[in-house]
Design a protein around this nucleic acid. Structure first.
Lengths: 186, 186
DNA sequence: AGACTCATGTAAGTCGTTACATGATTAC
DNA sequence: GTAATCATGTAACGACTTACATGAGTCT
């Protein structure tokens, strides 16, 4: 009886975690936790982020489980840093992630939520949000433009797609926000 | 000594949570947990989501703290449902959220991460991701177009901005993905 | 004098997901 | 007969953020 019973959750989703992203970064070049955070804030900013409170404990855990190795580098005039390098086991773990099922986009946009409920707020508040949204988008675009300038020649084909998606998306967003602001202001 | 010490974290960020979004939904109309989930999957899908495992416990907590009231509605041929209605205290809490500082966009896109590391994957895998991405985007667009058809006339100005951003973003994404796929395929 | 960059880490707590548990009705 | 829709809820667990803690060097 019940031949299908007893824990049949073998196909659990196993979504992308910080560990997978860190493995990918270390596939390209060895990094410190600080370097990784910097990449999150520049290269990955429009599709991923994680705080130091995630990065450092994750790196420790990964070292313990043999996915990466640590090397302490003493520097003159700067704090000592820990450079992490991926191991063969780490590479296998990364390829395993690439073979796994594609996960959904997870997004929580406070700005869009406020826009949706904008009719319940005072018009000045909505204008403030739009102005702030425009400023944020311009800042994000500046980072992306700079990245394109700096690394266009060395980008892989898929990185170029990635960057194009980011840039066109932010440009579109900026245009919509500006149109919205002038529409509401009139 | 140390007159600035002793817990000076009075300006904690207090980011948007599910509770704020649920309050916003209930500002417009009373809903069951099931109805709220449905709204998340249609109206909010491209900028917010939450599972039943968040919605139901949040509704219970909100009722206990007096932000909403519950009414059980017995239905013929369907399960009994709990309809939640916002209270005056709940309205105040929502206005308080609207006055709070605008939070950053939180985004984790497995798809974009894979694109970024695409050079490390086999070309067929990348094509599969792109094809899947195109399918997902088309599905999202269909939902948005349908929403525009159904409710264009009754949308508030900011909801129209919201919908325009969603549609133009997805259209742009679709275009970029298709361009990317044909570029890689050749 | 103050701000920023470089650099690492922990502790407490929040927030949220997944899987489990149930079950009638309707549509194909 | 099988899938989808309608409907609610809990328990275990995982992932992540914030605040705290420290500190030298450089730039304005």
């Amino acid at each position: 009886m019940d031949r299908e019973g007893l824990l049949l959750h073998l196909e659990g989703e196993l979504l992308m975690t910080s560990q997978d992203v860190i493995l990918g970064i270390l596939m390209e070049t060895s990094c410190s936790g600080y370097d990784i955070k910097h990449k999150f804030e520049t290269l990955f900013s429009h599709f991923y982020n994680a705080s130091y409170g995630t990065i450092y404990p994750t790196l420790s855990r990964m070292e313990k489980s043999g996915l990466i190795t640590k090397e302490s580098v003493v520097q003159a005039g700067k704090p000592t840093k820990n450079i992490y390098t991926i191991t063969e086991q780490g590479r296998r773990a990364f390829y395993h992630y690439l073979e796994s099922e594609l996960g959904e986009v997870e997004i929580k946009s406070d700005f869009m939520i406020r826009m949706y409920f904008g009719a319940l707020a005072q018009p000045e508040l909505v204008s403030k949000w739009l102005t702030e949204g425009i400023r944020n988008t311009e800042r994000a675009l500046a980072v992306l433009y700079e990245e394109r300038e700096r690394s266009q020649a060395i980008l892989s084909p898929t990185q170029r797609i990635c960057l194009n998606i980011g840039i066109t998306n932010q440009e579109n967003l900026l245009q919509q926000l500006e149109a919205g602001l002038s529409e509401l202001g009139s």
